[in-house]
Write a protein that binds this DNA or RNA. Sequence first.
DNA 1: CACCCGGCTATACGCTTGTACAGCTCACTA
DNA 2: TAGTGAGCTGTACAAGCGTATAGCCGGGTG
Lengths: 224, 224
Amino acid sequence: MAGTQAGGDPAFEDLTARARIRQAALAQFTAHGFERTTIRGIAGAAGVSPGLVRHHFGSKQELRDTVDAHILKEIRRLSDLLMAGSRRGELDAAVVSREAVRPFQAYLARALAEGSTTLETLFDEMVTSTETFLALPEENGHADEEPHFVDRRTRAAVCTAMALGVPLLQAQLSRVLGVDITSPAGDRQVALALLDIYAHALMSPELAHSARDALLATPLPAEP
Amino acid sequence: MAGTQAGGDPAFEDLTARARIRQAALAQFTAHGFERTTIRGIAGAAGVSPGLVRHHFGSKQELRDTVDAHILKEIRRLSDLLMAGSRRGELDAAVVSREAVRPFQAYLARALAEGSTTLETLFDEMVTSTETFLALPEENGHADEEPHFVDRRTRAAVCTAMALGVPLLQAQLSRVLGVDITSPAGDRQVALALLDIYAHALMSPELAHSARDALLATPLPAEP
DNA sequence: CACCCGGCTATACGCTTGTACAGCTCACTA
DNA sequence: TAGTGAGCTGTACAAGCGTATAGCCGGGTG
């Protein structure tokens, strides 16, 4: 696994040992998840001793919390930066928000799937952001073309979870598409696919209605 | 954690010890993932000794492979059953396929995210199934309302990954929605939300086009 | 009856893990 | 110069893991 060794990045050695450890932890948590990542592995990638990891961060869990907090801060910073730099409100707030998340997509998705209390907030904000995004066409005169089955927040939450499915299944996706979707080219292809999907209805209203009727016709099974 | 103890299910004790172990492993892998699940934990939940797990399955990895294969077979069986029982082709093949996957959604999604060679096949089949589903409206006279940015298979693959994001983030989703989405009521709400989302375009064609232009205008960063 | 083989348990081994701690180095300061 | 504390290392330890193995039990078979 090249690139995770110490000294792979030229600017890597200029960082504080503490920052190097945090960065190595970020990479390893992203690649292998929290459980499979070992303190020794992080220390090795950062070019320090395992003891120093504990010296700086106390425990593995505290290290994770620190990385989570760092990601949170970094996304907020990027979001503000993009929000301020978007000339004439070029694209919408939700798009900007998604763009701010992109660099840490994989880590964020994994952390949320594994259950991170620190980043729960971010998920909630993404849902809210998606919610306002979904409200856009409904305010632009496209009102009630088709009635909705559930309220907007529910749709926003499901959409947010679905969007995070892409980085979570990046291995499968890369395999099927024949491109590493973490590479610039692959990422662009996925971005285009997402725009394409968002721009079209995937189902005809008739099919959706018949499916809903079929769903509501079957009785709800009792709780065990 | 109630329900994972031995004897929780009345019909549970009637099973072979081997089947009980397999079932317990399925539950634990689903709930905690492969890494965090221990052989001792599985044995405890199945009401047998840890040694018996090895006796029947050889190793933890082989146990996982067995569970994967079992899931694969079970989904195929359910799929055939539903396909045969669907009167007058009531809903489409893709919907039936999704329905066959549903009982094992959470396990399947987790296994795919963690990298299961056995279930890769199933992911590919889901992509193909989604692909034919996406082809539906295009054949029913709704041809080229809006041109597509990427080919159909790419869209199908991304859609499949997105759909699996729901079970992968079920904890976050349940928290935001205030309902356990693994419960019958919660599952139905999510199903309705999915139908709703699939039935509507999430983005106006104008916004999609401007976003695509903005995307293609920025040069592709060089590979490191 | 003796045999024996599959289901099953108890115990133990070796390894890796997170964690703990004593002590080294070295720039900075009184 | 002597002292001090932060940064950092090496070694060690207890716990938990997957794995291995010797042996118990009971029903089917010659």
